[in-house]
Design a protein around this nucleic acid. Structure first.
Lengths: 331, 331
DNA sequence: CTGAAAGCGCTTACAG
DNA sequence: CTGAAAGCGCTTACAG
């Protein structure tokens, strides 16, 4: 495999390199016979264009970074999976960038993506996005955020209606006969997390049940603490809503270690709709976010903004997913 | 942010661009005063070199692809996480490439990486790697595989001692008093999967217990089928080893839906040591693979091969991780 | 419709 | 130790 460049194809096809370039990049600008001949020769040689050289020359590439805090979190993994495909279908190459929550890393990725001539990027944050900080980077002007954003409406966003999700959860639980419904935050950085909690607080008050937050921490041990709290209560709630599926898993696990069974002793719901939930013990009832849609829409929003500067804020509908972790209250 | 290039830095610093280049890439080749001056000017301007242009010119980059079948599988997610950091520390940028099991995609990544002048790559396969197919690509000669490999020992590999892991699992279960121990394959593509199964078959025969494979499929429903099988047996085993943690989750979930409790009614072990296992219900007893070590070593092996052509095959020791999904046999 | 030339942002022998 | 020149693999006005 000697180094194949546009010039060797040009020579082999008996044309000038600019014609080869056009045959690939602007096919309509070259006579069809010439084009077909060139393409055939190129194929025979096993030639493909160098994206590096193309990017350098045109100052635009097809690399689209997806910046996530933690790929080990199944929510982001599922997002990455669907976005890889969505990007592919549109001719982009998704570059997964994992920050592990380190803001310095995020900035590093921003300058790197700038240098790679990425046309735009997607960020799924773990904290409320500071749009001012974002815009200190050139690249920050071409980013869509998978969360709500405050104050500044100039960055495109896509989220799920958090309040509606909590309504769905509460309705489900109440229809089962629950009146005492607790909440475990478990996450707290994003607006999404905040919105879920706020909605719970507000809606349970409206429903004339007293809000009961078992834990509001945001570390991985929140689930365990919530379970401990539950076990120590005289009148524990008969159902629990967890701020997301991962927290629900942790709660159920810790509860189980304490001898409490789900859903026999207490119902537990999650929020996210992870595939993993269907194989949990018990399979998790949850509010599904349309993760695949979010990924597709994020890319569309980015393209739109890139094209004509339009900035959209899309809010998707969540959906109740009843599995086995909820049932009527005990007794 | 006007476009910053080496030439604008050169002008601002009053030197030739080649000197700027050296100040960054071969600092010892330039007088220290000059260098410091250049670096200061560059910093003031907010200049960093274009990795694209560098790669194009030197025909080598710092992009290191990690090719995995499915990022949604926590094993690969954890691998990706530790490898991102390992790569970073060595000055590489990990590029996550997800094939979704599509061989065509793998080939696509290979040619893309070739085009990106990646110095080498890491592949975590979902099937037995065909080294001949691998080597049809130039890039295939600079790849390390996270699995065993057959026949051809010219590609560096890193794995865990599968047999040893099964020994650990069997010993643990037997020490608890189990004599009837079933197995669920759940995965089957890789040598690793094969080796685990073979070891189980061989070692349970040696231990004079009859091997009992509840399911040998490799799809996501293997766990459910195994549970069904279990429920239909007259004399079901008192313990089950699952080929990996994800399968163990599915088995426990399906068993739970069938009214069987773990570990009260049957003990279940996994294999992998995923972080997720500690938050399963019940927390999963398993054989831990040193995933972080695997990642680090994979990169080291790649570097070594790249440097002096040496090819190593590293086999790591697994470790028993006792949590709550195993106990003595019932009654 | 095709070719010749200039240039994207770098590096590296080669002189001096 | 530093500069001038050629070139990595492309694209795109500009001619013809």
């Amino acid at each position: 495999m000697a180094d194949l460049s546009i010039d060797v194809v040009a020579k082999a096809a008996g044309v000038h390199r600019s014609t080869v370039s056009r045959a690939f990049s602007r096919p309509e600008a070259v006579k069809s016979e010439t084009r077909e001949h060139i393409l055939k020769v190129a194929e025979g040689l096993g030639y493909t264009m160098s994206p590096l050289a193309q990017a350098l020359r045109t100052k635009t590439s097809t690399f689209v970074p997806l910046i996530v805090p933690d790929i080990t979190n199944p929510f982001f993994a599922e997002l990455a999976k669907t976005m890889t495909q969505a990007a592919d279908e549109r001719g982009y190459q998704l570059l997964l960038c994992v920050t592990n929550g380190d803001p310095a890393k995020t900035e590093g990725y921003f300058t790197a993506m700038q240098a790679m001539y990425a046309p735009f990027g997607i960020v799924a944050p773990s904290t409320k996005v500071d749009t001012d900080a974002l815009k200190r980077f050139d690249f920050g002007h071409r980013v869509v955020v998978i969360d709500r954003v405050e104050g500044d409406s100039s960055v495109p966003t896509v989220t799920v209606d958090s309040r509606r999700g909590i309504v769905l959860a509460l309705e489900h639980l109440r229809s089962l006969g629950h009146t005492s419904i607790g909440y475990v935050s478990g996450i707290s950085g994003t607006h999404t997390a905040q919105d879920r909690m706020d909605a719970y607080l507000e809606l349970s008050a409206e429903g004339s049940s007293t809000p009961l937050v078992l834990d509001s921490g945001s570390d991985p041990d929140a689930g365990a603490r919530a379970a401990k709290h539950f076990l120590e209560m005289e009148n524990p709630p008969t159902a629990i809503i967890a701020a997301n599926d991962m927290v629900a898993f942790a709660v159920i696990s810790a509860l189980g270690q304490g001898g409490i069974r789900v859903p026999e002793d207490v119902s537990v719901m999650g929020f996210d709709g992870l595939a993993l939930g269907s194989r949990f013990n018990p399979p998790l009832t949850t509010v599904r976010q349309p993760i695949a849609d979010m990924g597709n829409i994020a890319i569309e929003l980015a393209e739109k903004q890139n094209l004509n500067g339009s900035v959209d804020h899309v809010v998707l509908e969540p959906e109740l997913l009843v599995r086995a972790s909820t049932s009527g209250p005990r007794k």
